[in-house]
Simulated scan of single mutants.
Amino acid sequence: MSAAPVENPRVLFVGGLGRSGSTLLELLLAQSPDVCAVGEVVHLWERALGADERCGCGEQFTACPFWRQVGEHAFGGWSTVDRDEVLALKDRVDRTRHIPRLARSSLSAAQLADVRKYADLYTRIYRAALAVSGARVVVDSSKHASLAFALRWADGLDLRVLHLVRDSRAVAYSWGKQVRRPEVVDGEDFMPTFSPMEVSKLWTAQNAAFHLLATRAQVLRLRYEDFTADPAGVLRRLRLFAGLPDDPAALRLLGAPGDGSGSARPSAHGDPAPPPAVPIRAHSVAGNPLRFSGGPLTVRRDEAWRTRLPRRSRAVVSLATLPFRVRYGYLGQQRSSDSVETS
């Protein structure tokens, strides 16, 4: 489905550190036709255009009809995009070390030109995604704070940022596991792994950056643990934040209110209902392997890190991330991490 071009595309940018549940939120939001989820667009230049990796729909990027149309709408075809030039521009703009500069109230003429040229690439993609899909909001789960800071300088972009937080100890446990990347076409590749101290530094830096961004842009903070406790309520809140109506049909994949399951199988009234007739997928260019599962999805609480994260590692992460753990209400919690399963 196609719609008229959108002058000021609205994007819900999901920010935070990876392994915090952004793919799950994105997939559930994308089941409503007024939402178009595109995955982690920040990786499009290297993983999609460079390596021709698989889209969340299962097709390789160059073979995906959705992304081919997006490329035509945005740039007159992906072949017109100078990938090397984009990557060089990205290095000048979109790096964590540039955040202090991007947070300023003004930039030099040269810096402003670079930032707006870089942000315009994303604005074009968002606008094209809305035109091709007919949706009203694009969800970009790139997560990188530096990209969010760059997008705040964009001309003609309605930017709304979701700051997604998860217990640092659960995140450290997840980043220590070896996870295969099913989107890779040739050979076998795995997502990177990080030590507990590395995760602590990244978790603290990313969260601190989004606190700073909240003083300069529309930012809504959400704990992933709160999402699993009340998925329907959180999705309603996110739709409201994104400027979308409270539509019961948008929650059709969730379980009965208060059942805590988050299952895609029960109806909104708790009556048995068949699984969705279509796979739970989105045209995502990068993200957690969950996007290839096909669904239905089930959200459940998982405390595996409490027994499987080595005591020393847990102590390192707990101490290194203490200030923000206190701020987010994780100190002394008995149950504080979550995971996603597919059935």
Rank of each mutant, 00 (worst) to 15 (best):
E46M: 13
L49T: 10
G50N: 06
C57Y: 08
G58A: 09
E59V: 07
E59H: 14
E59W: 14
T62L: 11
A63H: 14
F66W: 10
W67M: 06
Q69W: 03
V70T: 04
G71P: 05
H73I: 02
F75W: 05
F75L: 12
W78D: 08
W78I: 07
S79I: 04
S79Q: 15
R83D: 05
R83K: 12
R83C: 07
D84S: 14
E85K: 12
E85Q: 14
E85I: 00
L87C: 09
L87K: 11
L87D: 09
A88N: 00
D91L: 14
R92E: 15
V93N: 08
D94Q: 14
R95G: 12
R97E: 15
H98L: 05
I99K: 08
I99V: 11
I99P: 07
P100T: 03
L102G: 00
L102N: 04
R104Y: 06
L107A: 03
Q111C: 00
R116A: 02
K117N: 05
D120S: 12
D120E: 15
L121M: 09
L121F: 13
L121K: 05
T123I: 03
R124I: 05
R124N: 06
Y126G: 08
A128G: 10
A131S: 15
V132K: 01
V132Y: 08
S133P: 00
R136P: 04
R136N: 00
V138S: 11
V138T: 00
V138P: 04
D140I: 00
D140Q: 04
D140S: 07
S141F: 02
S142T: 01
S142K: 10
K143T: 04
A145K: 01
L147W: 02
L147D: 06
F149Y: 07
A150K: 06
A150T: 03
L151Y: 01
W153R: 04
L157C: 12
D158N: 02
L159T: 03
R160I: 01
V161D: 09
V161A: 13
L164K: 05
V165I: 15
R166Y: 09
R166K: 13
D167W: 10
R169D: 01
R169H: 09
A170E: 07
A170Q: 02
A170G: 15
A172M: 08
A172L: 01
V179L: 14
R180F: 10
P182I: 11
E183I: 02
E183P: 00
E183D: 15
V184N: 05
V185M: 06
E188F: 01
D189V: 05
F190Q: 03
F194C: 06
